[in-house]
Amino acid sequence: MNEIKEKLLKPSKETHQDQIGHLISLVCIGFIGILVVAILFFITTKGLATFTTNHVSVIDFFAKSDWSPSQKGPNGKPEVGALAMIVTSFAVTLLSAILATPFAIAMALFMTEIAPKRGQKILQPVIELLVGIPSVVYGFIGLMVLIPMVRTVFGGTGSGILPATIVLFVMVLPTITSMSVDALKAVPRDYRSAALSLGATRWQMMYKVVLRAATPGILTAMIFGMARAFGEALAVQMVIGNAVLMPTSLTSPTATLTSQLTTQMGNTIMGTLPNNALWTLALVLLVMSLVFNVIVKLIGKRSAFKK
């Protein structure tokens, strides 16, 4: 009898097992946390060196579009203006998201409203396969198919914002579609039957009720799509032309933040201005990625239907 009483008040093997188990899982999650902090910290410090060590003007960096950090410009200083890349990055991002959203909404409506069973069965694999194709393959097909086409139609080199937008359109399509599907599915069933029973046509029901109720979700989907487009490197780099010039048309060779990073990081020496300037581009990418996250959170707070 007393034996049990004693055991009841003493830690046992199980107590230690639990402490160890808890500790191990804590270490794992802590590792991920530290990793995120490290990424933010190192890329931020590296990225700020352009301004703190090399004393490049922040305003010049964001407002000027002459980019030759390795050579002295007319005023005796290297020119570090990233505007052209920033503009191109935003241009391809916005254009591809705008182009993809109608298709994504059509896909989502098809899968949830028009042919829920058959649509799901056919289109779900379509989405998964589109996600599965690696970005270098998208870039390669862009290079082999799109560029010659653009060249024939518009002249010039064929590279630029237009082919990049088309490539990104296909790449962000599955992201926007699958998240839109989730958004539409979250709209309660009764909304639909209520609308139909009031004599609305199916399109009126979809447009006025379902899509309206799912707007925050669809916006979130667009933002996620844009985040993917903004950060995509190789596929864009292969079709954008890689000339750091302000785009003059949709088919003039230009460069995005990611394409410049991809092609130049290996050609510069750590610690020099040309290298630091690239890290600043990486910092812009990082900050934009955070901004997209914040926007998603803000939309989520206003959304009526939570997942």
Binding site: M1, K5, K7, L8, L9, K10, P11, S12, E14, T15
Partner: peptide, 15 residues
Amino acid sequence: YRDVNINQKKLNVYV
């Protein structure tokens, strides 16, 4: 239970 208050923090719940 067995002269022990089992509703205490120190208690070995596994036993």
